[in-house]
């Protein structure tokens, strides 16, 4: 067994090795949260089904029937739901990750482990909801007679990007949430605001041409447009330039989030 040396003020070199050592804890934590989520209420799974479905119905009514937004030749429910998929994943992952540290405060003040494990496993829980939603999507696609093409595989990297975005922003917010306890009021606001500025209920083609580059800087815009393309096979709208910028932004957020998390992590047990 190697000797462990801890010195004041030195950031630990063995952190990343530790992170690997605690991978089982990460899985267990995710497993526990998933168990609890679907056990606590009988309607646990039903909830995961109903939430995106009901939101989709409302959006279809509001944006298609009332606002008469263009549907780009795709059944409007599919247009909305294919955006709802990544958006719900992102929103749930972000809020679960942001609150994960505070809701596991007890563990953090009593046990050592690399704290990054906590927000990361919170995202896994959101991911299970995402998988359930994928199943709903399959049912909807059969209903509307949409045959998937090879493009459907694009969902994988796009999910990866969503994951990274939620993780980067999530760890950042999680750390801020420990430091400033009133930050948790900001998080639902961010999520709600994001829903309106992302093209969930409408196609991004309604955005005027000159604003598209700016609009595409929101990482979720590229992801949502990508999802629509992958699912319907119709390139509804895709701004490559904006997508590239937002991809860089995602990596910046993730790197910055991890950096900030690592910086404040040492004091978590003292302030939580």
């Amino acid at each position: 067994m190697s000797k462990l040396v801890i010195e004041a003020g030195k950031s630990e070199l063995h952190y990343w090795a530790d992170l690997w050592k605690y991978r089982e804890l990460f899985l267990f934590l995710a497993w526990r949260d998933i168990l609890v989520r679907y056990k606590q209420t009988v309607i646990g799974v039903l909830w995961a089904v109903l939430r995106p479905l009901l939101t989709t119905i409302v959006f279809v009514v509001v944006f298609s029937r009332l606002a008469k937004m263009p549907s780009e030749g795709v059944p409007y429910p599919i247009l909305v739901f294919s955006a709802m998929l990544p958006w719900q994943f992102f929103a749930t992952a972000l809020s679960e990750a942001s609150n994960s540290l505070v809701s596991n405060a007890n563990m953090i003040s009593k046990i050592y482990f690399p704290r990054l494990v906590v927000p990361a496993s919170a995202i896994i829980v959101a991911f299970t909801d995402f998988l359930i939603s994928l199943f709903i999507l399959a049912v909807m696609m059969i209903w509307y007679g949409i045959t998937p093409s090879w493009q459907l595989l694009l969902i994988l990297p796009l999910t990866g990007i969503t994951f990274l975005t939620a993780f980067g922003a999530g760890v950042w917010l999680a750390a801020l949430n420990v430091e400033y306890r009133d930050f948790r009021y900001v998080i639902p606001f961010i999520v709600q605001f994001g829903l309106y500025i992302s093209p969930v209920g409408f196609s991004s083609s309604v955005i005027p041409e000159k604003w598209r580059l700016l609009y595409s800087i929101n990482p979720m815009v590229g992801v949502i447009d990508g999802f629509r393309w992958a699912i319907t096979g119709k390139a509804v709208f895709f701004h490559w330039g904006g997508f590239a910028i937002s991809l860089c932004l995602v990596f910046l957020i993730a790197a910055g989030g991890i950096w900030y998390f690592r910086k404040t992590e040492r004091a978590f047990a003292d302030v939580i």
């Binding site: 067994m1 462990l4 040396v5 801890i6 004041a8 953090i108 046990i111 050592y112 004091a267 047990a269």
Partner: peptide, 16 residues
């Protein structure tokens, strides 16, 4: 138990 970090000094722990 490494839950919190020292402000000064050092410690060596040999083993789990």
């Amino acid at each position: 138990s490494r839950i919190t970090q020292p402000s000064t000094g050092r410690m060596e722990l040999d083993g789990r």
